[in-house]
Simulated assay, not measured.
Amino acid sequence: MADRILRFLRGEGPDSQGRFLRDVLAFDDGRLEARHDFIQWLFPLPEPSRAVPGSPVLSPEEASAIRADPRALKGLRAALGRMSRFYAETDHWLTRFDHNHLRITRIIAATRELLGREAAAAFHDAITARNAAAGHAVNDDSLRHWARALG
């Protein structure tokens, strides 16, 4: 189905595991940390995931459809809010190397592409401020990837 990401973000269709957007948004912090097969649905990119083969890949047509769909944008904003709370309320990612650093890059890039640079910059600013408050724990390469994803 060509519009499976759109349908997921609208709350109308399941991801590859049979979960709907509402199910993923209801994950507690422990489940968000432990699962690696949801972030590609919440924040789709036009290139395949190296971490989770078979994850959806955002086509230019589907990106346009998402940007034009108020319900999909509402779902994407809800996902951004949930992940923003996750990073604000947890500390384990505030270390030199962590898989969440890749997730953050994805979130910034997808947010920029689908919600706009302003929303992506707000998330980037919150993440980098959190890192600064933790004594600049995150490695410089990750910080550069986040800045590049912001554009």
Rank of each mutant, 00 (worst) to 15 (best):
R10G: 01
T111S: 14
T128A: 11
A63N: 06
A78Y: 02
D28G: 15
P53E: 13
P56H: 14
D3N: 15
R96I: 00
S142A: 15
P70H: 05
L45R: 12
L32F: 15
R112S: 08
L80R: 04
R31T: 13
R50E: 12
D28T: 03
L143M: 04
H145A: 08
F123H: 13
H36M: 11
F8E: 00
P70Y: 06
D37C: 07
P48A: 09
H36V: 14
L115Y: 09
R22H: 11
A63F: 07
T95P: 03
T105P: 01
E62I: 08
L42F: 13
I104A: 11
E113L: 11
R10N: 04
F20E: 00
L21E: 02
I104Q: 07
G75S: 04
P44F: 10
F97M: 08
Q17Y: 06
V57T: 15
S64H: 08
S16H: 14
R10F: 02
H36S: 14
D69F: 05
R19G: 07
D98R: 12
R130E: 06
L25H: 02
V57S: 11
H101T: 03
R85I: 01
D29I: 00
A147L: 11
L25Y: 05
E118K: 15
L76H: 01
P60N: 08
G18P: 03
E113N: 10
G81E: 14
H92T: 13
A126E: 15
R103Q: 12
T111M: 12
D37F: 03
T105N: 15
R35Y: 10
